[in-house]
Design a binder for these strands. Structure first.
Lengths: 208, 208
DNA sequence: GATAATAGTGCTCATTTGTTCAAAGATTGC
DNA sequence: GCAATCTTTGAACAAATGAGCACTATTATC
């Protein structure tokens, strides 16, 4: 496989970044706009080069149909990996706002390892506090969170009355769902105004 | 979130299947063709329902721009990853021989996520037993182990008197090292003949 | 029995989007 | 120096694609 140029690598990186961020591929004009090109043909040239060199594959004439073939330096579609943005920390203690100013890091795991599926907006949060200690989630752990509908017993990142916390979701048959800490020193949390589930914890990663 | 109908679930499943197989989203007409509809509007109806019920999200007017909100994940690739062999399970309980007949699986993680170095003889083991529960390591967790010389307080995979276990390594100043469980129901382990450290636990990964 | 939601057909339309032709300056290898 | 490749501009086109309107049937729901 031929070497790609600096500019071509930038284009390729943007494709990666876009699909990771948005969940679908960019159009030619999305790429054009991002790089500030005055013509879509600037993009076409690079894409043709990347295709010729074997980094990218597309369905001719069809919209947003990329495939990363890669290998060189970086992995690709063959291995089902997911780059997960880390959005800051979440309180596993008393509810708090998520402490984050956007993305603060990235995790990369394959989807089986992290127990996630393709297509959604998975993210990760660093846990602060010890209210989930009974579930083996400690202060400083990283939780991989996936948006979805929780079932009774799931551990969730939840927005309760305007603040965010990591707790176990309990939904009694016919009752109102509430949040339960896995630590006797913390009370159950019953929502007074709202309970929004931001995501379900799918995996816990801890560095020792 | 409202319940979806049988037909709507079929549509959703097709979206999943398609993105998983092709790597990009289908167009409305792709869906139409697959189900044999005579009109694209049949698809539109179902998509509108799925959107209204919160299972799917799209960018209006733009091609192949789906997002699955409930149960799914996506592609991408990126940084320094390491494929770690999984060698079976290790007892975090009473010492036992490592139950393994060679490699039984693989983990793929990036080296920062798993706190490891490249090129080492890192491996992973599934934990059996609950003797490390106090350190937040549960039955069924995966531990990433890296060979090395342990320091006092490290969690290690150790061979003690011919059997293997996962424990905390304690080395008192001027004393003999021993192994300590993080669970009051288990005793300290003092080696009678040998204590070989097979590796230091660097990370714990748990799927929820 | 009325009303709403579901499940389609058929057709048309406007945009989105990929593609092509023509051209030119910059860089690199021979 | 010359050819090849890279990088970009600009304009125009045609196909791909999502979306709307009108209408029919069936199945729940109240």
């Amino acid at each position: 496989m031929k070497q790609m140029t600096q500019r071509q690598a930038e284009i390729l990186e943007y494709l990666r970044e876009f699909i990771g961020r948005e969940g679908f591929w960019p159009s030619i004009r999305d790429v054009q706009e991002h790089f500030g090109f005055r013509s879509t043909n600037a993009v076409m040239g690079h894409l043709r080069a990347l295709e010729r060199k074997g980094y990218v594959n597309r369905i001719p004439g069809q919209a947003r149909t990329f495939r990363l073939l890669s290998d060189d330096g970086l992995p690709a579609g063959a291995v089902e990996t997911e780059e997960i943005p880390v959005y800051g920390s979440i309180a596993a203690g008393y509810p708090d706002r998520i402490e984050s100013s956007g993305e603060v890091g990235r995790l990369l795991v394959d989807i089986h390892t992290a127990n996630i599926r393709r297509g959604g907006k998975t993210f990760a949060l660093r846990v602060t506090g010890d209210s989930m200690i009974g579930a083996g989630i400690q202060n400083g752990d990283m939780v991989v969170v996936h948006p979805g509908i929780p079932r009774d017993g799931d551990i969730v990142a939840a927005l309760i009355d305007g603040e965010t916390t990591l707790k176990r979701y309990v939904h009694p048959r016919g009752g109102t769902p509430y949040l339960k800490a896995e630590n006797p020193s913390y009370p159950e949390l019953y929502p007074t105004t709202e309970l929004v589930i931001q995501g379900i914890a799918r995996a816990v990663i801890r560095n020792l």
